[in-house]
Protein backbone atom coordinates (compact mmCIF):
# COMPACT_ATOMS: atom_id res chain seq x y z
CA UNK A 1 0.00 0.00 0.00
CA UNK A 2 1.34 3.37 -0.89
CA UNK A 3 0.66 6.10 1.51
CA UNK A 4 1.42 9.77 1.35
CA UNK A 5 4.90 10.15 2.79
CA UNK A 6 5.18 12.53 5.70
CA UNK A 7 8.14 14.54 6.82
CA UNK A 8 9.64 13.38 10.08
CA UNK A 9 10.18 16.64 11.88
CA UNK A 10 9.96 16.19 15.59
CA UNK A 11 10.07 18.80 18.28
CA UNK A 12 13.58 17.68 19.31
CA UNK A 13 14.98 18.45 15.89
CA UNK A 14 13.51 21.92 15.77
CA UNK A 15 15.87 24.37 17.46
CA UNK A 16 14.33 26.97 19.70
CA UNK A 17 14.37 29.79 18.96
CA UNK A 18 15.27 29.53 15.27
CA UNK A 19 16.82 33.00 15.27
CA UNK A 20 16.80 36.29 17.10
CA UNK A 21 14.98 38.03 14.26
CA UNK A 22 12.35 35.32 14.56
CA UNK A 23 11.77 36.38 18.17
CA UNK A 24 11.39 40.00 17.10
CA UNK A 25 9.10 38.87 14.31
CA UNK A 26 6.76 36.81 16.46
CA UNK A 27 6.61 39.68 18.94
CA UNK A 28 5.83 42.48 16.49
CA UNK A 29 3.83 40.69 13.82
CA UNK A 30 0.90 39.27 15.85
CA UNK A 31 0.83 42.59 17.72
CA UNK A 32 0.55 44.38 14.37
CA UNK A 33 -2.45 42.24 13.39
CA UNK A 34 -4.09 42.74 16.79
CA UNK A 35 -3.46 46.50 16.62
CA UNK A 36 -5.12 46.56 13.20
CA UNK A 37 -8.24 44.86 14.55
CA UNK A 38 -8.27 47.06 17.66
CA UNK A 39 -7.94 50.26 15.59
CA UNK A 40 -10.70 49.14 13.27
CA UNK A 41 -13.10 48.44 16.11
CA UNK A 42 -12.13 51.47 18.18
CA UNK A 43 -12.13 54.08 15.43
CA UNK A 44 -15.28 52.81 13.73
CA UNK A 45 -17.08 53.76 16.91
CA UNK A 46 -15.06 56.73 18.07
CA UNK A 47 -14.00 59.70 16.00
CA UNK A 48 -10.48 60.80 17.05
CA UNK A 49 -11.64 64.39 16.49
CA UNK A 50 -14.36 64.03 19.16
CA UNK A 51 -11.90 62.36 21.47
CA UNK A 52 -9.45 65.23 21.06
CA UNK A 53 -12.10 67.89 21.67
CA UNK A 54 -13.21 66.14 24.83
CA UNK A 55 -9.76 65.48 26.25
CA UNK A 56 -7.12 67.82 24.86
CA UNK A 57 -8.87 70.60 22.93
CA UNK A 58 -5.71 72.72 22.79
CA UNK A 59 -3.70 70.03 21.12
CA UNK A 60 -4.22 70.67 17.44
CA UNK A 61 -3.77 67.44 15.54
CA UNK A 62 -5.46 66.10 12.44
CA UNK A 63 -7.63 62.99 12.26
CA UNK A 64 -4.88 61.23 10.32
CA UNK A 65 -2.49 61.89 13.20
CA UNK A 66 -5.15 60.66 15.63
CA UNK A 67 -5.60 57.38 13.78
CA UNK A 68 -1.86 56.90 13.42
CA UNK A 69 -1.11 57.59 17.08
CA UNK A 70 -3.99 55.31 18.07
CA UNK A 71 -2.70 52.49 15.88
CA UNK A 72 0.86 52.84 17.12
CA UNK A 73 -0.35 52.87 20.73
CA UNK A 74 -2.39 49.70 20.20
CA UNK A 75 0.63 48.15 18.51
CA UNK A 76 2.94 49.08 21.37
CA UNK A 77 0.58 47.63 23.98
CA UNK A 78 0.00 44.44 21.98
CA UNK A 79 3.75 44.09 21.39
CA UNK A 80 4.32 44.38 25.12
CA UNK A 81 1.87 41.56 25.67
CA UNK A 82 3.59 39.47 22.96
CA UNK A 83 6.98 40.13 24.50
CA UNK A 84 5.77 38.97 27.91
CA UNK A 85 4.27 35.84 26.36
CA UNK A 86 7.59 35.07 24.66
CA UNK A 87 9.42 35.58 27.92
CA UNK A 88 7.06 33.30 29.83
CA UNK A 89 7.01 30.65 27.11
CA UNK A 90 10.79 30.33 27.31
CA UNK A 91 12.15 27.50 29.36
CA UNK A 92 13.71 29.00 32.50
CA UNK A 93 17.47 29.37 32.15
CA UNK A 94 19.94 28.52 34.87
Amino acid sequence: MTSLPRADTTAQETRYPPSRSWLIGICLWPAFLAAGVASLLFFSGIDPETLRLQTMPHWEISRTAGYSIGFLMFWAVAALSSALSILLARPPQK
Binding site: R15, Y16, P17, P18, S19, R20
Partner: peptide, 9 residues
Protein backbone atom coordinates in the same frame (compact mmCIF):
# COMPACT_ATOMS: atom_id res chain seq x y z
CA UNK B 1 26.88 33.87 23.62
CA UNK B 2 23.18 33.40 23.24
CA UNK B 3 23.70 33.39 19.48
CA UNK B 4 25.14 29.90 19.62
CA UNK B 5 21.71 28.42 20.20
CA UNK B 6 20.35 29.97 17.04
CA UNK B 7 20.53 28.05 13.82
CA UNK B 8 22.20 30.00 11.04
CA UNK B 9 19.54 30.68 8.44
Amino acid sequence: SSDSMYVAQ
